[in-house]
Simulated assay, not measured.
Amino acid sequence: MTEKTPKTAAELYAFLDGLGIRHSTKTHAPVFTVAESVALRDEIPGGHTKNLFVKDKKDQFFLLTVEENASVDLKTVHTLIGAASKVSFGKPEKLMEYLGVIPGAVTAFGAINDSDHKVTFVLDADLMKDEIINCHPLSNDATTSIASADLVRFMEATGHTPLVLKVTS
């Protein structure tokens, strides 16, 4: 198996530009948690995301992208997303292998690196009500803002059909 080199933020922006998708990015000090990123709220409007990289017992992987303050019941979410069993967190090695990111930089934009379609992307329906969604551009030292409809277009252009489901309580 050949190691794939994860795409860079510049390659992500070029991909978005190629699709005619408007996006803006603000660089900032690296943030590893939602709590650390709260300081940026005044500077970056829109829905801010929290991403949960999970797997079931059959090694099906899912990325749940939800509003940063929402809670996901990991004991029952498998019944909503089509997992074969209760889910647990995926290992950092799989996160890098499939999405090309490290823990703390997990993002829906990781779909650009999932060329083998190993991950099912789930966008929370409540988050998708926001006009603008904010995600890390494959690293945690910046935040990229994109229209929610364009996030779906981006995913479809990477060969993924995201599930838009209410997975939060």
Score class of each variant (00 low, 15 high):
M1L: 15
K4A: 10
P6V: 04
K7Y: 12
K7R: 13
K7N: 07
E11P: 00
Y13I: 02
A14W: 09
A14R: 15
L16H: 12
D17R: 14
I21A: 03
H23Y: 12
H23T: 11
H23C: 03
T27K: 06
A29F: 08
V34Y: 09
S37T: 12
V38K: 14
L40G: 04
D42G: 15
E43W: 09
G46Y: 03
G46R: 06
G46D: 00
L52G: 00
V54G: 01
V54H: 01
K55C: 04
D56V: 11
D56T: 10
D59K: 15
D59W: 11
D59V: 01
Q60F: 10
Q60V: 13
F61Q: 08
L63V: 09
L64M: 06
T65P: 08
N69R: 15
A70K: 15
V72W: 01
L74I: 03
K75H: 12
V77Y: 04
I81T: 04
G82P: 00
G82Y: 07
A83W: 06
A84Y: 13
V87T: 08
F89C: 03
G90T: 12
K94Y: 13
K94P: 05
V106M: 07
T107K: 08
N113W: 11
H117G: 09
H117V: 07
K118R: 15
V119H: 09
D124Y: 06
A125C: 03
A125T: 13
M128Q: 13
E131C: 10
C135S: 11
C135P: 04
H136P: 04
D141C: 09
A142W: 00
T144E: 05
I146E: 05
F154L: 08
F154E: 01
F154T: 11
P162L: 03
T168Q: 06
